[in-house]
Amino acid sequence: MADTASQVLLGSGLAVLSQPLMYVKVLVQVGYEPLPPTLGRNIFGRQVYQLPGLFAYAKHIVKVDGRAGLFKGLTPRLCSGAIGTIVHSKVLQVSHVVCAELPGASKKEPVSSLEQVLKETSREMVARSAATLITHPFHVITLRCMVQFIGRETKYSGTLSAFATIYREEGILGFFAGLIPRLLGDILSLWLCNMLAYLINTYALENGVWAFFASMLTYPFVLVSNLMAINNCGLAGGLLPYAPTYSSWLDCWSQLHKEGNMSRGNSLFFRKVPTGKRYVWEERRFR
């Protein structure tokens, strides 16, 4: 119990510190570009037109909403993190108890065996999936609170009122918008990371190089999930001209792929102007 409490506190602290980063990232994922490109230099010293990076974008948000504006959506995110940590911990505890009671469970296995890796990864997958399923409504509210910056709306002004709004307008399914690609991305990233670490037998890299590599490969799932969570929800950021009304997450994936936007928002530094597109000041986006 003490370990879970410490994990909740640590997670909450990290969430507060990283909130401005997530806020900017979500707005970039939507395609909102409040500042026009400027002439700068890339890492090779060549002059190129670049989009504002993390700090310039955050400075603009502070100019509009003040420093507190960087923390929109923090309350539901903290709720999501705390509840997710507790659910994850409880599911892992139950899975270990169940596995210990199975026939032959007393047999000792080498920690590095493939069978052990598969078992541990499977338990972690179940625990993560359960936590994601339970906390996804808070994730949806977090994203919508952030995207309100685009249209200057106040539709999702509080966590409890946001629950009532979503239920009234979209029903139960509204709380799980974007859930499938998010789950698929999490599961794929987990298995990819753990199996690569096992195959190379370099477990010291498990949470470093391979985690980064896996997150890069599965980023499109994160992007599609976030876009589906705000799709056609009544906010300017989820409607044209920023986003069409997607019929499903597969439709969203397909359109992003055709536009070459599968990695939009993946990097918040050295952001190049999209090739073949022009910046539209009135809409604060590229088309």
Rank of each mutant, 00 (worst) to 15 (best):
M1K: 01
A5W: 01
Q7P: 00
L9Y: 05
G11C: 03
S12R: 04
A15Q: 05
V16Y: 09
V28M: 04
V30L: 13
G31P: 04
Y32K: 02
Y32D: 10
E33Q: 04
P37G: 05
Q47R: 14
Q50C: 01
L54Y: 15
A56G: 11
Y57S: 09
Y57M: 12
G66R: 10
R67P: 12
G69Q: 09
T75C: 08
R77N: 12
L78K: 08
G81I: 11
H88N: 15
S89P: 10
V98S: 11
V98Y: 10
L102Y: 07
P103R: 08
E109T: 10
V111S: 12
V111E: 15
S113M: 05
V117D: 11
L118E: 11
E120K: 07
E120V: 03
T121E: 10
V126G: 12
A127K: 03
A131W: 01
L133K: 04
H136Q: 08
H136D: 07
H139F: 14
V140D: 03
T142F: 05
M146C: 11
V147L: 02
Q148L: 07
I150G: 08
T154I: 04
K155F: 06
F163R: 01
T165W: 09
R168C: 03
E170N: 05
G171R: 05
G178C: 11
L179P: 01
P181L: 02
D186L: 08
I187Y: 00
L188K: 04
L192E: 10
C193A: 09
N194V: 06
M195D: 07
A197L: 10
Y198A: 11
I200G: 06
Y203A: 14
G208K: 12
V209F: 15
F212I: 13
S215Q: 15
V222M: 08
V224H: 07
S225D: 02
L227G: 03
N231G: 02
N232R: 03
C233V: 11
G234D: 05
L235M: 09
Y242T: 00
A243P: 00
P244M: 02
Y246C: 02
S248I: 07
D251F: 00
Q255A: 02
L256P: 04
K258Q: 14
G260W: 07
N261C: 12
F270I: 04
P274H: 04
K277D: 00
Y279T: 03
V280T: 06
W281C: 10
E283Q: 12
R284V: 01
R284D: 14
F286A: 08
R287W: 04
